[in-house]
C-alpha cells in the first residue's frame, strides 16, 4: 500500500510558566492508503497533540513544532506550508472529528449551513448546490429525517446525532485522511458501536485512511488495522492489530492490557494496576520513560533510551528487553494460562 502521510521526527512542545513541556518527542510513523491506524495511550501521552499537529492546529495554541520535524502529505511538508496552503488541506485533504461534538459545532448556526460551509469554501459551488449536497451527506451518515434536521441547531440533537453531523462535515470534501480524536468517548455503548460501524463503512466506501486516537483497547481491538502505543510523548510499541494483541512485547502494553477487567482475573479478583505515575514531561527523559514504573527494569533502562527494534517488518518495540543480551521475559498475559487475545 502506498504511503499517504509520512511523519518524521515530529516533536511538539509548549512553553509554560514552569518551563517547556515536551509533549511529543521525536515521533515518526507512516499512514498507508485505506488503513485504520490507532494511536492508543493514557491521558497526557501525546496522542492528541500528535494528531492535531498533522493539521497544524497548534499554530494558535502556542504549540511549537521543533525544527527537524517533517509531516509529508502528498510529497509536501505540512510543517513548512503557508497559512493559505494549510487552509487548502484542512477539511479537504485531511479532516478531523473531535471528542466533544457539543463544543465543536457552532451553537448559533443550523447544522445544514455548517456542513454546507465546508463545501462552499473548498468546492466553490453555489449556496443552493452546497446545501443540497449537505442534505445528501446527512442521509449518507444515516441521520433520520435529514431535511428536517438541516434546520435544527446542535442543542436539538442527541450526542450520537451530533457526532454523525461532525462526520458528515468531515467527509464533505472526500478527504484522503480522516483523523478521529476519541470520537466515541462521550457516547453510550450502543451509540458507540453505531458510530464506529459508520466510520468503518465510510472508510471502505470512500477508500479513506483513518487515524483513530483513543484510550479504549476495546475500540481498537474491533476497528484498527495497525496500532501505535504511546507513552510520555513517544511511541513505545507499534504493529499490526494481531501483533499487538496476541504477541505484545513492551511491558507498558502488557500493563495496559492486564489492567482491563476481564475473565483473566476472576470475579472481584484484584486488577493489575501500574505503580507510580507517568513522568513529568518538563524533564528531558534521556532514559526509558517507562523504567521507573516497569516491573522488568534493568540498570541500562535508567541510563539510556532504547532504540526501536523491529521484530517483523511492522512490529516495532522500544524496549531494552528486546536486546540480545537482555534476559528473556515472556508475555505475562500468556503465563496466566489464558491469553486475552485471539
Amino acid at each position: 500500500m502506498a504511503v499517504l502521510l509520512d511523519v518524521k521526527n515530529l516533536s511538539v512542545s509548549f512553553r509554560t510558566m514552569h518551563g517547556e513541556v515536551k509533549a511529543v518527542r521525536d515521533v515518526s510513523f507512516e499512514l498507508h492508503e485505506g488503513e485504520n491506524l490507532a494511536i492508543v495511550g493514557e491521558s497526557g501521552c501525546g496522542k492528541t497533540v500528535t494528531s492535531k499537529a498533522i493539521l497544524r492546529l497548534h499554530d494558535r495554541s502556542g504549540g511549537i513544532v521543533s525544527e527537524g520535524s517533517e509531516i509529508l502529505f502528498e510529497g509536501k511538508n505540512i510543517v513548512r506550508m503557508s497559512r493559505k496552503e494549510i487552509g487548502e488541506i484542512r477539511g479537504n485533504g485531511i479532516s478531523m472529528i473531535f471528542q466533544d461534538s457539543m463544543t465543536s459545532l457552532n451553537p448559533t448556526m443550523v447544522i445544514g449551513k455548517q456542513i454546507a460551509e465546508n463545501i462552499l469554501i473548498h468546492k466553490k459551488t453555489g449556496k443552493g448546490e452546497s446545501l443540497s449536497q449537505a442534505k445528501k451527506l446527512l442521509e449518507l451518515v444515516n441521520v433520520p429525517d435529514a431535511a428536517e434536521r438541516m434546520n435544527q441547531y446542535p442543542h436539538q440533537l442527541s450526542g450520537g446525532l451530533r457526532q454523525r453531523v461532525m462526520i458528515a462535515m468531515a467527509i464533505a470534501c472526500n478527504p484522503k485522511i480522516l483523523i478521529a480524536d476519541e470520537p466515541t468517548t462521550a457516547l453510550d455503548v450502543t451509540v458507540q458501536a453505531q458510530i464506529l460501524e459508520l466510520l468503518s463503512d465510510l472508510q471502505k466506501q470512500f477508500g479513506m485512511s483513518v487515524i483513530l486516537v483513543t484510550h479504549d483497547f476495546g475500540v481498537v481491538a474491533n476497528f484498527a488495522d495497525r496500532i501505535q502505543v504511546m507513552y510520555a510523548g513517544s511511541i513505545v510499541e507499534r504493529g499490526k492489530k494481531e501483533e499487538i494483541f496476541s504477541d505484545p512485547k513492551h511491558p507498558y502494553t502488557w500493563a495496559l492490557l492486564k489492567s482491563i477487567p476481564g475473565r483473566h482475573q476472576g470475579h472481584k479478583g484484584e486488577l493489575y494496576s501500574i505503580r507510580g505515575t507517568p513522568p513529568d514531561l518538563l524533564l528531558p527523559l534521556e532514559h526509558c520513560p517507562f523504567s521507573p514504573r516497569c516491573e522488568y527494569c534493568m540498570p541500562i533502562c535508567k541510563k539510556r533510551r532504547p532504540e526501536e527494534k523491529y521484530m517483523t517488518e511492522t512490529h516495532g518495540i522500544a524496549c531494552w528487553l528486546t536486546h540480545e543480551k537482555a534476559p528473556r521475559v515472556d508475555n505475562p498475559l500468556k503465563i496466566g494460562g489464558e491469553a486475552r487475545a485471539r
Binding site: T190, N222, R342
Partner: peptide, 24 residues
C-alpha cells in the same frame, strides 16, 4: 446492550454481529 460491548476479546471486523436497535 450487551452485544454492543466492544471488548478486547471481541472482534467486530471478523463478523461477530451486533444486535442493532432501531432509532433512538
Amino acid at each position: 446492550l450487551f452485544s454492543s460491548i466492544l471488548s478486547v476479546d471481541s472482534d467486530r471486523s471478523s463478523g461477530a454481529s451486533r444486535i442493532k436497535l432501531e432509532g433512538e
